[in-house]
Every structure is written in C-alpha cells, then in structure tokens.
Simulated assay, not measured.
Amino acid sequence: MIVSRLIGGLGNQMFQYAAGRALAERLGVPFRIDRRAFGDYKTHAFGMACFNAPISDAPSYLVPNMPGEGRFHRIFRRFRPGPLRLYAERTFTFDEQVIGLPDNTYLDGYWQSEKYFGDVAEVIRADFAIRNPPSAANLRWLEQIASTNSVSLHIRRGDYVSTPAAAAFHGTCGIDYYERAVTYLRDVTGLDLVAYVFSDDHDWVAANLKLPGAMYLVRDNDAASNYEDLRLMTACRHHVIANSSFSWWGAWLDGREDSVTVAPLQWFAGNTPDPRDLLPARWVRM
C-alpha cells in the first residue's frame, strides 16, 4: 500500500494525490490517502471529493505519527501491522528516488512536478475528471468556450496579496505578464483569441486588466465550487497560468498536444525554492 498525506489548497492536494497514485500504479498495489491534517487546518478544506478519483482513507493503525495516540492504540498495534515507512520531501526539485520507492511507503510532501506522475498521465487525468455535471451557468460557459479560440487566464491574488508572509514568498504576476502572454499566443497561433479570465479577486481584475481582443471575466464560481473553474480552464484551447498550482492543473489537465501554455518565469518572489522541475519543458516561460 502507498499512502499520501494531503494538505493545502486543491492544487496542492492534486499534486500529493498524483505522486502517490502514480507510485501505487507502478507497483500494482493499493493507494490510500491521509487527510487527518484537515481536522485543524483552517486555510483550505479537503477538496478531492469533486473528482472521479477513487478516494480511500488509509487505516489509522498504518499511518505514522498518529496524533493523540493513546494506550489503546499502542496495544492495538501489537496485533496489526506496524506503520508505513515515511518518506518526506527533501527538496522542491524532482527527487528521482520517489519513482522507485517500495510498497508500504507513506509520502509526506508537495511533489510539485509532473515527473512524479507523467508516465501515468492518462490515469491521473481520468481520476481528475469532475464527478458531477456542470451547473447551468457553467454549461453555458463551456458551450461558449467550445465555440471560440479560447485561452484561459488565471490571476491569483487572495492571500498572495492580503497575507504579508505569503506575499513575500509568492509574489504576484503583473498585468504586463498577462498582456505579453496573450500577445504572444495571438502571434504564435495566428488566431483572434478570446480570453476567459479566472480569479479570486474579480473586482480587482475588472478594474485593472485590459487585454488585446475579447475578454470575459468568469464570476459564477466561488471557493466552494472552484472545481468548476478548473473544468472551464481545462476546456480552453490555450492557457496563461499564474504562479499557482491551481491554474497549473487547469492547463496540465488539457492533454491536447497542440495546446500552448504560458507560465511565469518568476514563480516565487525570491530565489528559493528552485522551481526548475515545476513547469513542464513544453510550456513557454515568460
């Protein structure tokens, strides 16, 4: 059995799931998740229930570092198998050892690179198909996206702006980045593109973003239905992502070989962590 610890926003949860699922798939063993950390985590909720992914929780007696373990649990362990072998993330860059880890491993990290799961990409994409049909409003967006030369554009603000520590660590992509990215896509595709803009700060976007060509601001979804935005992003023909794991997945789940994704060259505000393995080589950095 392979177990992945899940924590963070939806994009982070998806990376953690994908790395563990891929390892279990290679080994031909069951895959389980550990979501206990969400019990006292106030920033984000567990969000994976929106997907077709076969979600199963790991048995508590197998999970290492069980919080609040008392005498009963210690006695119980004598009659059941011991905890899994913990493998914690050592660096933000790709760790090749993860690919060859053995059965009975517990993964604790973020694993933000497709190198952990690219060899089973179709399995991951199938798992991350949205379980429920779109709402009426989102169905109208999907129909419009399908009828235009669409490009998804994601502007991440939220805690990247409001929380000093997050702002200092992540930073935000400037308006000039989005303007250059859309101009580049228009030039390289030769098409009159229609931009569909997704954000956690719609009012700021409406007041500040001016793009060449047609632009629509998608306002119908909130944090509780963010998977709807993910589905709409993936439906677009091309992508301009923010320095955000959420829009990373919006672009990656679009498996069309001729789709073009533009990503920010500066992923973090500082020089660390090293994001060299975060962006697929086929994506354009700008």
Rank of each mutant, 00 (worst) to 15 (best):
R90C: 08
R90V: 05
T91H: 12
T91N: 12
F94R: 10
E96F: 07
Q97A: 15
Q97I: 11
I99R: 14
G100V: 06
D103M: 11
T105W: 12
Q112L: 06
E114P: 15
K115A: 12
F117C: 02
D119A: 12
V120Q: 10
I124C: 02
A126V: 09
F128Y: 05
R131G: 10
N132R: 14
P133Q: 02
P133S: 08
P133V: 02
P133K: 09
A136I: 14
N138V: 11
L139P: 00
L139N: 12
A146W: 04
T148A: 13
N149P: 08
N149I: 00
S150Q: 06
S152F: 07
H154Y: 08
I155E: 02
R156W: 04
D159I: 05
Y160L: 00
Y160C: 01
P164I: 07
P164E: 06
P164L: 06
A165L: 09
A165M: 07
A166R: 00
F169T: 08
H170F: 10
H170V: 03
T172P: 02
Y177V: 02
Y177A: 01
Y177M: 05
Y178P: 00
A181F: 02
V182C: 07
T183D: 01
Y184K: 03
Y184S: 02
L185Y: 00
R186G: 08
V188K: 05
T189R: 02
L191E: 12
D192H: 09
L193W: 03
A195C: 14
Y196C: 05
V197C: 09
S199D: 08
S199K: 04
H202F: 11
N208A: 05
K210D: 13
L211V: 08
G213V: 07
